[in-house]
Design a protein around this nucleic acid. Structure first.
Lengths: 257, 257
DNA sequence: TCAAAAGTGTTTCATTTACACCCATGA
DNA sequence: TCATGGGTGTAAATGAAACACTTTTGA
């Protein structure tokens, strides 16, 4: 939803404002306390949680719409954001839900209402720095929270499917792209980076081999600082070498052929 | 376009028939004489070539629409078909072209005509067996031909950009997926498979190392036959072990992490 | 008999894996 | 002083890269 418009306006004027039959759903990933999190909304009058989403203005690039939605929910700009799939099955439009939804907002039933038409939705996933994001519900929601990926239950519509596909895409891309710059704080320990990888991949990695491998990519710099306060050797703090990181994003980390 | 409808019907009734503001463009790849080909259409009243495309019926899955379009242009069913991107920039809609197009087909100018609205388009790429495909122009086109990828010039709209993205995706997927089953005839020589890889990757590979590597994937079977007729040792004919091939598609060919 | 491509192996080098001990820190 | 996790190295196995000569075939 566009935060510059009241939701009543949106519900009524949507047909004129938005590109028809097209929505966006964002899977916003964060990383905190060694857990992968996803940002979810709980809509009013519903007990299900949902992915943040919205519509594309008639004169707006789809990419920009996704960034706008992301910023509205997290307060963050210039975030890593990537389109991963268009969901276009006819069955995915659950007009029952939207019908109920309209009635709850005092819009009389009208089978031609724009929200009751068939929608296809474009999935984007975002990687954001957990500490910097400030979750904000949209006007139609009563809550906006980070949820542990392991604890996500039944979501609205086909949002579980969208989330699964996002995660699958993220895992694929981890194979040949660096990751972490968008999810970790500026300075981080090797262990934190490893935990991120382990969480996304869903498996344990050998500590020493992990270290050797990521260092061989040449995308990390030692800050020279250490993190104190724990009852063991103070670990080194690393930061990403942004130039090399971006280069690795473009060229990939390894060549098979 | 749906071949069951006359194009006049389509132009007039499209608004009722199709999901609004949504089109599909297909990048159909084939392989012949050691060259990667792409199937293009030449529309009437235009000197530019274009990707085969169409629209999504109101009660049709987007995936099914892509398959329908593919079948209409090649006569092939059950083809490898993969969505790769949604192109959603506002600039991509070149209403000038479609306006001209409508006038040429005797439709009076109407700024609200459905074809003059903004469209977003979903890109699918297909891998087809060159020998089995029978290129057929759609009713609005005067030609439908395989073009050598190297010789593709300026295409309609943003179709060059769509083609480039398809090729980039194909190259990416080659990194961790097997390829060839959909592009090569049932039986083929090691050299032909190698040429396919070389063409997609755009570089030469060592003959012996290539052979060792693809054989190590375990997705090939020797047929025991050879191909005679050339002035050199008759090469072995191979075929894909479909079960293992599909398994490799799912699991990927190599693990980095 | 000649040209062209197929078949075949080995050595070298790089990468990956598995694995163990000592050290620094805060409680 | 103890528990916890950090730092470090090596040997063995596997995989990748570079490379040359002989054989078969049809013209």
């Amino acid at each position: 939803m566009d935060s510059n418009l009241s939701y009543q306006q949106v519900l009524k004027e949507g047909e004129n404002l938005y590109h028809p039959g097209l929505s966006i759903d964002c899977v916003i990933f964060g990383f905190h306390k060694n857990e992968l999190k996803v940002l979810l909304l709980k809509m009013k009058y519903s007990d299900k949680w949902a992915l943040p989403g919205g519509f594309v203005l008639r004169e707006e690039n789809v990419e920009d719409a996704a960034a706008r939605i992301l910023e509205a929910r997290t307060g963050l700009e210039q975030i890593f954001l990537k389109q991963f799939h268009l969901f276009g099955d006819t069955r995915r439009s659950d007009s029952g839900f939207n019908r109920e939804f309209l009635e709850q907002h005092g819009i009389p039933y009208d089978k031609d209402h724009w929200l009751l038409q068939r929608f296809v939705t474009v999935g984007y996933y975002a990687l954001v720095n957990f500490a910097n994001a400030v979750p904000r519900p949209d006007p139609l929601s009563e809550a906006c929270e980070w949820k542990d990926l392991q604890q996500v239950s039944l979501l609205r519509h086909d949002h579980n499917q969208i989330l699964d596909k996002a995660l699958e895409t993220l895992r694929q891309e981890l194979r040949y792209q660096p990751i972490g710059y968008n999810l970790l704080p500026k300075k981080f320990t090797m262990r934190e980076l490893q935990k991120l990888y382990e969480t996304i991949l869903g498996k344990k990695l050998d500590r020493r081999n992990f270290m050797r491998k990521v260092l061989s990519y040449g995308i990390l710099k030692k800050t020279g600082e250490v993190r104190t306060g724990a009852a063991h050797t103070s670990p080194q703090l690393y930061t990403f070498d942004l130039a090399r990181y971006k280069q690795a994003l473009q060229e990939g980390l390894q060549k098979v052929w």
